[in-house]
């Protein structure tokens, strides 16, 4: 699905300071980015560059010290606890490096948990849960617990869970960080497929260069600032000239 001209995420002069003893660490130093609906964005940068912090701010998991985050033109700082939960539940799907499935629940139960919070009826929930697991190619592992699944399979379950309430945005923090090359590639392809077929915006913090091939734009973060923003065609040209 082509990207639209509508903004889905905007950040304005976003900064985050952490107090470490007497020292103040500036993880972000004023980041302004605009992301369009339907884009596939990679936030790249070395560890400690602030990409995970940016991820947390955009996902409403942490509060910025200064600046604002707009999701669908809503200022996150204005939201109360219920609205924030609502936003996380229905508008944003999260994927983590460590999968973060609930260990005591089966794949199907993990996927239906966000639907429980959204108040969906039991039968609809089960139906959608099964469909989602089929979508990610795990239709045969409905009742397995995370411990009985491989890393790649767990990440697929996590992706299905992120899609549970048909979010507009998928936020992925190092989604391939704990996976081997081949499985990582599969996960990236799956995310790209969902991005193209469902039009869901994918924002992924990563330092996996495999992500570059599928991203519409790449934000390079260094020392808490956006170093540069590259579109894929710019990126490809760069590669061409190098060779």
């Amino acid at each position: 699905m082509p990207r639209s001209d509508e903004y889905i995420v905007r950040t304005k002069d976003l900064s985050k300071h952490y107090q470490m003893g007497d020292e103040t660490v500036e993880a972000l130093k004023g980041v302004t980015v605009d992301i369009f609906r339907g884009e596939y964005i990679s936030i790249m940068g070395p560890s400690g560059s602030g990409k995970s912090t940016l991820f947390n701010m955009v996902g409403g998991l942490d509060k910025p010290t200064h600046g604002t985050v707009f999701i669908d033109e809503v200022d996150m700082a204005q939201l109360d606890a219920y609205e924030l939960a609502w936003l996380r539940c229905r508008k944003i799907g999260y994927i983590f490096q460590t999968f973060n499935l609930i260990p005591v629940m089966t794949a199907l139960e993990n996927i239906t948990l966000p639907m429980v919070f959204a108040g969906m009826a039991y039968d609809d929930m089960m139906k959608r849960g099964r469909e989602l697991l089929d979508t990610v190619g795990l239709g045969h592992r409905l009742h397995n617990k995370p411990g009985e699944l491989s890393g790649g399979q767990q990440q697929r379950v996590a992706i299905a869970r992120a899609l549970a309430n048909s979010p507009s945005i998928i936020l992925a923090d190092e989604p391939t960080g704990n996976l081997d090359l081949k499985t990582g590639k599969e996960i990236i392809d799956l995310l790209r497929r969902l991005n193209q077929e469902n039009g869901v915006t994918v924002i992924s913090a990563t330092h996996d260069l495999k992500m570059v091939d599928v991203s519409d734009r790449i934000f390079w973060i260094r020392d808490g600032l956006v170093d540069r923003v590259q579109t894929r065609s710019e990126m490809e040209q760069e590669v061409m000239t190098e060779h």
């Binding site: 996902g59 998991l61 539940c89 999260y94 983590f96 973060n100 499935l101 609930i102 919070f117």
Partner: peptide
Amino acid sequence: FREIGTMKCLGALDSF
């Protein structure tokens, strides 16, 4: 803790 954080990401209120 991590389970709690995950649940909050999935839309759980503190009260849940």
